[in-house]
Design a protein around this nucleic acid. Structure first.
Lengths: 111, 111
DNA sequence: CTTCAGGTACGATTCAAGTCGTACCTGAAG
DNA sequence: CTTCAGGTACGACTTGAATCGTACCTGAAG
């Protein structure tokens, strides 16, 4: 029952281009903003993001995020978990998650 | 001889989606990394970036950067200047330029 | 076993984006 | 004036990405 962790790039192999390409999409950015805003880094279900797209497309988007090194996907067979790679992302691109979190909380132009 | 400043979005209207889309392209990211690395924010010529693309395509890329609110373009008629909107970008997306600068200096995985 | 929900694989479609060719404009230098 | 380099406008081409339809797989619950 222990899920297999699907492969993503190594922590030091994260590419800024791939990351920006991943975050260029509105749906993927929405996912990342929600993940960045949760400081507990809890594993979440794929359908907990309320994306207004079909499940095939969701599969595609989560794959892109994983291949960009932003998230881990845990495969349980008939279910899937998502977890933010906060440590790796923060080490390679410090401040990026704070940017996303700021957008998530709507605190962009404030103060 | 005084150049006209081509119109871009207001400082508080900068959109993170447009910014990420702009930075998703390798050439535009190269330009932004060079601009971010220059703390003097000097105005630069369009051909000072050594982009391996035709001049029509360069026009396109600089337009995208301007419409994303990342740079100002100063039109001199038969010449054009480029200047980073550091203050506006830093206010709306703090840390973003530092990210680009870190990539420019190759100091990503160091320390 | 069957059923069912969640997820994937593959292909097709549609659309946006990067690129360049041709033609034209602009200002400076002969 | 003419010439020339830098830049733009428009259109065409091409590639990549987002989306979904169909079919199939996986594990849990009856």
């Amino acid at each position: 029952m222990a899920g297999k962790n699907l492969a993503g790039p190594q922590a030091d192999a994260l590419d800024l281009g791939a990351v920006f390409r991943a975050l260029a999409d509105e749906h993927r950015r929405s996912v990342m903003m929600q993940l960045a805003a949760d400081r507990g880094d809890n594993e979440r279900g794929c359908n907990s993001f309320d994306l207004p797209i079909s499940k095939q497309t969701q599969t595609h988007h989560f794959r892109v995020l994983r291949e960009a090194g932003l998230i881990d996907e845990i495969d349980y067979g008939n279910r899937k978990g998502v977890r933010l790679r906060r440590t790796d992302v923060e080490k390679k691109f410090p401040g990026l998650l704070a940017l996303l979190e700021a957008q998530a909380t709507g605190g962009a132009a404030s103060c």
